[in-house]
Amino acid sequence: MLAAGADRTLPHGATALEIPAPSDRPAFVTCPSFGNVPPAATAVHLPPEMLREPRARRTRACLSFASDPEAEHHARRLAYAYITPPEAPCRADAGPFIRRAFRTLALDLPQNFELLPPARRADATVRFRTPDLREAALRRQPFVLDGVTVKLLREQAPAVRRVSSDYIIHAALRDYPVEQRTRKGIESNCFRFGFVLEIDPACFTAPDLATVRVVLELEDPREIPHEVRIDYCDGHGSANVVPVEIVRVWHRSHSYHANGQYIPLFQAA
């Protein structure tokens, strides 16, 4: 139990960070109704323009995963080999040519790399023993032998932006429809701006059916909209308008043990 007078909206020992100014937050996000259920009893009619988001937000969705050091180490050992010109006969069986190029042009580097099946539209995937050996091979380029070039590239995905979810938000979803009041429904209606870590159990039982309190992990508190508009997609503009209040903001380090385990906020109270 928390001590008398303790702040039940913030983890013990955490420092409350500044809540974004209203003008910095988007007006709303629109989410399709979870499970295609019929419109809630509290649904209202909204014209299409009130459910249509600006293009910049309509196409945005982020998934954030905890970093896996082992997976990152493995990825840093990989390089993708591209052979030019396209008509070079060795492309049909790239492995022997790549090994010959290394033995001829980089004999001082370890030759114990592995050749894996092609990926990223490359002619071969090369797995070095360590990330440092991969970087040494990249610096040695270009590998040009008998008029054929082998180009090594790191894994690159220019269209993907790495997301760092450093913030935790305690948010209150007002006037939340009873028909959407399931864990999956709440997660679905919040996924556009955050990952749901926890839901206050009190929101599932009477008499508190007006507000859903959630703990969200996300990249930027300014992504929290003023409203979530739940669209029932029934062709009549039926929707629920759920105001979103930011109760508290803090750094994620206060919500995890040293072993990476999440520390509940509501159950702890």
Rank of each mutant, 00 (worst) to 15 (best):
59 T>K: 12
125 T>V: 11
205 T>A: 13
123 D>V: 03
60 R>I: 09
158 P>A: 05
254 H>S: 15
219 E>G: 09
135 E>P: 05
267 Q>V: 11
267 Q>A: 12
245 E>W: 04
204 F>L: 03
148 V>S: 03
134 R>V: 02
176 Y>E: 01
86 P>E: 13
106 A>D: 07
204 F>C: 02
113 F>C: 04
18 E>Q: 15
74 H>G: 12
181 R>K: 14
78 L>C: 07
43 A>C: 09
125 T>E: 01
70 E>K: 15
42 T>Y: 08
160 V>K: 09
190 C>Q: 04
163 V>S: 10
261 Q>A: 14
79 A>F: 06
221 P>S: 07
255 S>V: 03
24 D>P: 05
201 P>N: 07
120 R>W: 10
122 A>F: 00
93 D>V: 09
238 S>T: 10
216 L>Q: 00
200 D>L: 04
181 R>E: 09
244 V>T: 04
87 E>H: 12
51 L>C: 04
155 E>W: 10
13 G>N: 09
226 H>C: 02
1 M>K: 12
97 F>T: 02
75 A>F: 11
265 L>G: 00
93 D>I: 07
101 A>R: 03
107 L>N: 13
208 D>A: 12
35 G>E: 12
264 P>E: 01
88 A>K: 00
212 V>I: 04
215 V>G: 01
117 P>K: 07
203 C>T: 08
231 D>P: 07
200 D>T: 04
138 L>D: 00
131 P>K: 06
227 E>F: 11
236 H>L: 14
257 H>S: 14
182 T>Y: 04
198 E>R: 03
